[in-house]
């Protein structure tokens, strides 16, 4: 039987309360971040909304990452926020162009320690046990798609995609993304949470790069899955301001919708980001899982398609 809107909102409010208690007990400071920012988040495959009132251009955050990192560089220490985030064009059963991002940072921690804390929080929110499997990105392809994503040729990827091969052509990154969403993700987070680790260096986003057990450069990045759904994305943060700015400039060069660098963010990074790990959780998706809802719109007070 469908749950009434009021009941769903009550349950969601209860989950928010648990998040607040969790971080309060651990001494992590709650922050209200601004909704309009001076420059764009520049992550591969993520498109921001651009706003203009006739004089000033501002961008809606695709995550509150820039604001929180600026505050950490200013010395506020461990912090968290549950903030509105916006991603243009992402609309579907598990996506909404406007949603809430639960994001937090831990000073002096690495990605492994932070992934454990995410699992602890997920257990508190969903009532499920805090048991997780760790799977490297490379092994996830080996296990569920029976190919090695590092050594596979484009023909190998096409063979795996079958009739979908034509959709991606010779774009290797797109082929791997389609195999990931189509053949791998549905198997992740079944029975236990899945922590996917050691992303390829080419998909480092704002994570630092290190060597894996085989001496391959990998991103210190993880994602966490539950019930086949991607819930969290975390990094041992890159603190090298010059490299970070270069990554953003490279991404900016591929854009054509008037995106601008977030200069205030990069100035703060130049002053120095302390060693830290950070993670972003799609809070609406976590609510979906906790309440057993089938679509993200059912977790929201007023869904995008009704706005």
């Amino acid at each position: 039987m469908p749950i009434s809107l009021r009941t769903r909102l009550q349950q969601r409010a209860e989950l928010t309360q648990r998040v607040r208690s969790f971080f309060h007990a651990r001494g992590v400071l709650e922050i209200d971040t601004p909704v309009l920012q001076g420059g764009a988040n520049l992550d591969y495959g993520v498109v921001p909304f651009r706003l203009c009132d006739g004089k000033t251009v501002r961008f809606l955050p695709t995550s509150p990452e820039h604001a929180l990192k600026r505050l950490i560089a200013a010395g506020i220490g461990d912090c968290w926020t549950l903030a509105p985030a916006f991603r243009s064009g992402e609309n579907g059963q598990r996506h909404a162009p406007e949603f809430r991002m639960l994001e937090w940072y831990r000073l002096g921690w690495d990605d492994h320690a932070l992934a454990d804390e995410v699992i602890a929080l997920f257990a508190v929110i969903t009532g499920r046990p805090p048991t997780a499997e760790r799977l490297t990105w490379r092994n996830a392809f080996r296990l569920h798609a029976h190919l090695d994503p590092v050594t596979a040729s484009i023909e190998d990827l096409h063979r795996q995609l079958g009739t979908d091969a034509g959709v991606v052509g010779h774009d290797r990154a797109a082929a791997l993304d389609l195999i990931l969403t189509r053949d791998i993700e549905p198997h992740l987070g079944r029975g236990v949470w899945t922590i996917m680790t050691d992303y390829p260096a080419s998909a480092c986003a704002q994570a630092r790069i290190r060597s894996d057990a085989d001496g391959m450069p990998v991103a210190a990045r993880f994602e966490i899955y539950g019930d086949g759904i991607e819930l969290a994305n975390g990094y041992h943060e890159l603190t090298n301001a010059a490299e970070l700015k270069q990554r953003h400039q490279q991404e900016l060069a591929t854009r054509s919708n008037g995106e601008q660098l977030d200069e205030s963010f990069h100035h703060a990074m130049q002053r120095g980001l302390p060693d830290c790990a950070g993670v972003a959780v799609g809070f609406d998706r976590l609510v979906m899982i906790a309440l057993g809802l089938q679509q993200i719109a059912d977790t929201q007070a007023i869904p995008w398609n009704d706005a």
Binding site: D43, V46, E90, D177, E185, E230
Partner: peptide
């Protein structure tokens, strides 16, 4: 709509041919 958090977006559709009534999945 399917998409890894930071990656390429795809639309998985099921469509029916209005002439032959055949259905197929198309990405």
């Amino acid at each position: 709509f399917v998409k890894p958090g930071k990656g390429n977006a795809f639309y998985k559709t099921r469509v029916q041919n209005l002439l032959t009534h055949n259905t197929l999945e198309k990405t």
